[in-house]
Nucleic acid binder design. Structure first.
Lengths: 162, 162
DNA sequence: CGATAAGGTTTCGTTACGCAACTTGCAAAA
DNA sequence: TTTTGCAAGTTGCGTAACGAAACCTTATCG
């Protein structure tokens, strides 16, 4: 009678939820993007119970989304930092932010903004492109179920795992 | 001692999680994208308990992500369909799918594919653009906390709510 | 009328969450 | 050297959410 797991579902959404689908997890990741690194920083920022935070951080480290580093500084024991895998979640966070921007906040301002370091240009939208980089019309999308045996052609970034 | 709510957090990620952050909710939305409309279809597809499914469907309808329609067909039943707000979640699902494609599945195939209706070109990546539509370098992003009083300039699609 | 099916609701046991109190490790103050 | 103090947890306990199965309701079919 334990909580159902999504491990065996052959679906990317389910697999992602398996790793970051817990109630607090994505907010911890969001805070990590905001350069929070310490246990107490997450705790104060989120108002999360310490045992829950402890558990979520452990799972995030286990899943390779955060890495735990021991610090020598006085007053600071550990630092939790995003790995490459963790930083790659920015698209998920951005998609959620943009959705809420439109459907929840309405005209209110949102506090988390992604922007280019140099120009400070903000990410205002996400654009879907095919494997050649050509835009795909969002209004004319259909979803196809699988399993579709397809070869992923030439990935820009090889060496995906770690 | 109820579960902590994210309502009051002035953060788009939190607001989105408040509506679709429950354990099963995004999988129900995914199934809705796959043209499932009936209670029993969701139930069989997901293996979710009926009371949980009932509760999640109700909340999704309350939040305007699904709409419940009474059908006249024999066997008289209901259909749950995505609203515009619900269909707008495709970016979130796609971002999650692409992430798992890279970090979970590795070389395995994924079963949920978004593609253009006419050309059948698949969405292979999401591209961040600024408000002028110019691409923003993903590698050089920084995250800024708010609240940043910014005016959202000329949205492509006005009339956001409904 | 009885059987069957969709779409739930109820009941009940287990798991997860939330809170407070306690523990541990280290470092600086007294 | 003892004490204080903070970071980073762990433990115990009560409540809320979840999961499975049984039950209910409405409608159709024979």
């Amino acid at each position: 009678m334990s909580r159902k797991r999504f491990q065996d579902m052959n679906c990317g959404v389910a697999q992602t939820l398996e790793q970051v689908g817990d109630w607090w997890t994505l907010l911890i990741v969001r805070d990590a993007f905001l350069d929070k690194t310490r246990f107490s920083e997450f705790q104060e920022s989120l108002g999360i119970a310490k045992n829950i935070l402890s558990d979520r951080l452990r799972k995030l480290v286990e899943n390779g989304i955060l890495e735990k580093e021991r610090l020598d500084e006085p007053g600071a024991r550990y630092a939790y930092r995003l790995t490459k895998k963790g930083r790659d979640l920015w698209l998920v966070l951005t998609a959620m932010r943009l959705w809420s921007d439109r459907w929840v906040f309405g005209e209110r301002d949102v506090p988390l903004v992604a922007r280019e370091e140099d120009s400070h240009r903000e990410v205002a939208a996400l654009l879907a492109v095919d494997r050649d980089g050509d835009p795909v019309e969002p209004g004319k999308l259909e979803w196809a179920p699988g399993p579709a045996p397809r070869r992923r052609a030439k990935r820009r970034n090889a060496g995906a795992r770690r």
